[in-house]
Design a protein around this nucleic acid. Sequence first.
DNA 1: ATGCGACCTGGAGTGCACTCCAGGTCAAGC
DNA 2: GCTTGACCTGGAGTGCACTCCAGGTCGCAT
Lengths: 157, 157
Amino acid sequence: MPDYYTPGETARRFGVSLDTLRYYEREGLLTRVERGAGGHRRYRASDVELLDLVRCLRDTDMPIARLREFAELVREGDATVPRRVEVLERHEERLAERIAELVDRQAAIRHKIAYYRGVLAAAEDAEGAAGGADGAAGGRAPVGAGAEGRGARGSEG
Amino acid sequence: MPDYYTPGETARRFGVSLDTLRYYEREGLLTRVERGAGGHRRYRASDVELLDLVRCLRDTDMPIARLREFAELVREGDATVPRRVEVLERHEERLAERIAELVDRQAAIRHKIAYYRGVLAAAEDAEGAAGGADGAAGGRAPVGAGAEGRGARGSEG
DNA sequence: ATGCGACCTGGAGTGCACTCCAGGTCAAGC
DNA sequence: GCTTGACCTGGAGTGCACTCCAGGTCGCAT
C-alpha cells in the first residue's frame, strides 16, 4: 500500500484512460493533483477517493459541469458540506426518476418481445394447420409511453 | 381519429422536435413516410407505432445505428421477426444490466449522503460541546465501485 | 387574394465527453 | 549510459445525436 499511485495504476483501477484522468483534472473535477520531481502525477488516497465519487456520479450521468461545481465545493472546504449534500440529493432524485423510467421502458420492451413471440407461435401453428409463410402484419402492439401530451419541445416557425 | 397525423402533431405527441422526426427519417429509423400533394409528411398509424418503439428504444439508450438496423429488419418484412426478437432481447439484457448498475450507484450515493449527514451531525454536536467550526476533513467514506480490476481500456504507449 | 403559420430542403453548426497526436521528458532495469 | 515504457504538454480531432438556418412552399381561414 504505497502512499501514492501512478497515473497508469489509477487509470486501470477505475477503468478509464490516462487522457480521461488528465481531462478531469483540466476540467477541475479533481482537486490539484500533486507531481513528483519530474512532473509525473501522484494520485494520493484523497485524489483516489474524490475520483471514486466523480466516477460514481459520471456513471450515473451527472454532467461534467455539475461535477466541476461539486469539486469546487470540495475545494472550498468543510463549510460547503451542506451544499454538497443538496447537490447529491438532487442528483439522487433525478437518478431515481431515471431508473423508474428505464424500468417502465423495460416493461414495454418485454411486452413487445412477448407480442412478437405470439406472432411467431401463431405463424408456426398456421404452418402446421395450413401452409403459408404469412402471419400478422409488421408490428402491432403498443410499446408504451406513446401519447403523453407533456414536454412539447420543438415547435419551429 | 384521423387516418394520418401532421408532423407537428406527431412531434408534440412524442415530445420531440420536427427536426428530430426528419432526422430519424433521414437516418432510416422510420419506414418511408408518406407525403401529401404538397410534399408535407403524413404520419399514419404504422409510422406512429414504429416511432413509438423507436422512442422507447432511444429512451433506453439504443444507439441510432442499431435502431437503423432494426428498422431495416422491419422493412424486410415478417420473415425477420425472429431476428427482431433477438435484437430486442439483447437490448433488454443490456438495459437490465444498466438498471442494476444505476441502482448500485444510487446506493453508493445514498451512502455518501448519509456519511455527509453524519459529519454534519458530529460538527453540530461539537459546536454544542466545544465551539470550533471544524469537523472531519474533506470527504472520507468510500462510494463504491472503486477498484474492480476489470475493463482496463486506455493504455497509451 | 392575401396573410400567416406549418411545413419543405440541404447543409452547416452545436454540445458533450472524451480521444488522439506530435514531439518531447522521466524513471527503472541492465 | 542506454533502452524502453510510462508519462508530459497543448491543441486538434472524433462520434454521437441532434439542432439550427436560409430561403423557400403549402394550405387554410378571412
